[in-house]
Write a protein that binds this DNA or RNA. Structure first.
Lengths: 210, 210
DNA sequence: GTCTATAGCTAGATAGAC
DNA sequence: GTCTATCTAGCTATAGAC
């Protein structure tokens, strides 16, 4: 429910409350449709008090974006990860990690905000392009290329297979959030995600010699 | 540049101008950030005159959504299409048709508006879910199932293969529009789209007996 | 760090003349 | 079908008291 849950005193500061309320309202109504007044009302202070914590409405949005990027890096395997020892299980793990991260309400809401703003806000656009599309794609490509060289998967083009693995996941995740927003059943799309990963693994797995 | 280019007199009516300008501004700034005043200024009339053509700002948006849905049906093969005679070429054709339709500036702009509004506007959300995701997916599934029964493709699960074909296209198309919005090169993503279709066809095509 | 008060502006929509 | 004029309401942000 909260950004960092609490500070060192176990209390949620006004600044954190403003952050949480903003994330919630922006994700539901869109940045432009939310007023400082509304945020203040929800937090329980006057609108002028907001400016003691954030110099502008735009700044609140940028802080939200920064938080999102920071959390994303937590999900990523550290640079030290030994790519030489990875097995195809990494693909299942990555999907699982992504699922876990975006199951936190705050990250789910910020994802919506970013999708909402992507065509009008350059920072949001760059997050989608760089952090949500390019980076996972490049990592997948690198891993597949390495597995190819080690001969533990079928000799398929890593450039193509990275698209085949990564791109459906992005669409499926967006569909998942849209269904949830409409209070519709998401079981079907979760099944599709599982089937997709299974199918991908079956395609890259070499035939067993008997 | 215009909705229907012109009416029967070859002239663009004020109503059409309002439509075109609204599509343009909404796609660039988002619905909430555009004022009736701004639309009127761009059209060359006073804001009160807008209300002679559309009863509210919300109505303009809904008319835009209706137009989008109407154009989408044009792309779709008529119900009369003989599914029994389809060959795997249909997949290439569908991608081509989609590409053509969304290359028209108006459709591209409305697509952006819909993506922008999807989490805050139920009509936009339903268009994404129903017209952009579910409908193409179900059609692909039906076609694959029929080809399966006729034995002209490999015996793969149509439910899974429909995801494998359709979902990457949605992501790739969004990436394409984001890159264009950022004035970045789209060659790479277009190549990926082609490779994806080629790969998909190679997967479903049965091995040739020699 | 919160408040009251307010400046300065913009919004969507309507009334009624022409 | 366009205009001027205006209503009512909302907005971001600031000044300054406590």
């Amino acid at each position: 429910m909260t950004k960092t849950s609490s500070n060192k005193n176990g209390k949620i500061s006004t600044k954190e409350k403003i952050f949480d309320v903003s994330v919630d309202l922006f994700s539901k109504k869109g940045f432009d449709a939310v007023s400082i007044r509304e945020i203040a009302r929800e937090v329980g202070i006057r609108e002028s008090s907001i400016y003691n914590h954030y110099p502008s409405k735009e700044t609140i949005l940028n802080v939200i974006f920064q938080y999102f990027k920071k959390e994303l890096t937590k999900m990523r395997p550290p640079e030290a990860v030994n790519i030489e020892k990875l097995t195809p299980d990494i693909f299942r793990e990555r999907v699982h990690l992504t699922h876990m991260l975006f199951r936190t309400p705050t990250m789910e809401k910020i994802f919506k905000i970013i999708i909402n703003e992507q065509f009008k806000n350059e920072k949001a656009r760059k997050i989608v392009l760089h952090n949500l599309i390019e980076e996972p794609h490049k990592f997948t490509e690198k891993v597949l290329d390495n597995m190819n060289q080690r001969g533990i998967i079928r000799p398929l083009d890593p450039k193509i297979m990275a698209v085949e693995f990564q791109y459906p996941i992005f669409s499926l995740f967006m569909e998942y959030l849209l269904l949830k927003s409409n209070n519709l059943n998401t079981e079907d799309v979760e099944t599709r995600l599982k089937s997709h990963v299974d199918f991908f693994l079956s395609v890259i797995t070499p035939e067993v010699e008997k």
